[in-house]
Design a protein around this nucleic acid. Structure first.
Lengths: 197, 197
DNA sequence: GACAGAAACGAACGGTCGTGCTTTTCTCGG
DNA sequence: CCGAGAAAAGCACGACCGTTCGTTTCTGTC
């Protein structure tokens, strides 16, 4: 029982690494087997189907996102500091971790037009994440750090935008200033969220 | 000569449509042949290889982007109106057109970690686009609509972010307010770019 | 309306895909 | 240390992949 779970986790980690580079669709059982040192059939026995494997990869990634981004953020003081911590951990998550950057960003643009279990899981993750971010921003309003009438959904929308450009800028353009730019954009966003004075 | 060019264009259009949904990697010669009513070999004769086909799709898409976004924008009055026109046409390009949204956004996150001719072409397109956007923003500075010391690269970075979230929000989340949110974000960006007063 | 060249086709190739089986090897509690 | 059950391997399958090649059909010109 123990060994199997261990192997399964190792497979999923390697799968996430590969998928972050070539996409969940580009991920194949054969290469995954080679990279993990297993036989195709030995590896396949751990999953119901390839599609199930793709979903499992996303589920595991989501758990890790919660552990490495959401939980640490919630451990910091309520209000703007927490929003800032969220941003920093989110940025760190995108940079370290997988060799191909954030797996969700890759998977979303691959599956946003392909209905099925993968898209469903992705949608669930995105909704959960958006809700968490919104809640954290709401505490900043409650603490008086952000303006009373702040449009929370708009805030989430724009924060997501910063993360996406950062990924685009650092991954595609390989611009070393991407992180700096993201910080600048974030500061401007936070500034505009503050109470009028 | 004429017939061949025509067929080739039709193939590339269909290829772009398919790729916008399943990605350039998910695009296959077989399905493309079926969808265009050609035989696999008859279709394949138009291209040197699948990789060349992928590049050709991107080249054609780039030409269309110039025709439908850049050119109309440059036809409007210099300064902020032109920046605004650019934004509107860009938004329209993302929404109409391909069934799977903007093909560049999909292709970028698919190939940002896969070196080769496809990535090279993509990088060229992105650089050209960024430069064009920057130039247009620069005219707004020259016209006095935007502040003298405006960080142009930062402006491009943040505008790109708005386009990316819009795509994310409308494609993945299927949020009907995506366009409104994008406009709000754009207005805030422009506002912060204006001279102090 | 014959003729040359372009365009499309049909069939086949070696390979890899995801996925079933059966069999072998490992793991670990008694 | 042995035996039961879990884990991995081996092998095979049908389907589809990108690509090649020889043949057939179309197109436009004199």
């Amino acid at each position: 029982m123990t060994k199997g779970t261990e192997t399964r986790a190792a497979i999923l980690d390697e799968a996430a690494a590969i998928a972050s580079q070539v996409g969940l669709g580009g991920l194949t059982i054969g290469t995954l087997a080679t990279r993990t040192g297993l036989s195709k059939s030995g590896l396949f026995a751990h999953f119901a189907s390839k599609e199930a494997l793709q979903v499992d990869v996303l589920v595991r990634a989501r758990d890790q996102f919660v552990d490495r981004v959401l939980r640490p953020a919630i451990a910091t003081p309520r209000g703007e500091p927490r929003v800032r911590a969220l941003f920093e951990h989110w940025l760190a998550w995108q940079q370290s971790g997988l060799p191909g950057g954030c797996i969700f960003i890759d998977a979303v643009s691959e599956f946003d037009d392909q209905d099925g279990p993968v898209r469903d899981e992705l949608l669930r993750s995105e909704r959960d994440k958006a809700e968490s971010v919104m809640t954290i921003a709401a505490t900043a309003v409650a603490e008086g750090h952000f303006a009373e009438g702040l449009d929370l959904e708009q805030f989430v929308f724009e924060l997501e935008g910063i993360m996406l450009t950062h990924h685009h800028s650092s991954r595609m353009l390989r611009d070393p200033r991407a992180t700096t730019r993201a910080h600048t954009a974030f500061d401007r966003l936070v500034e505009s969220a503050r109470p009028s004075h």
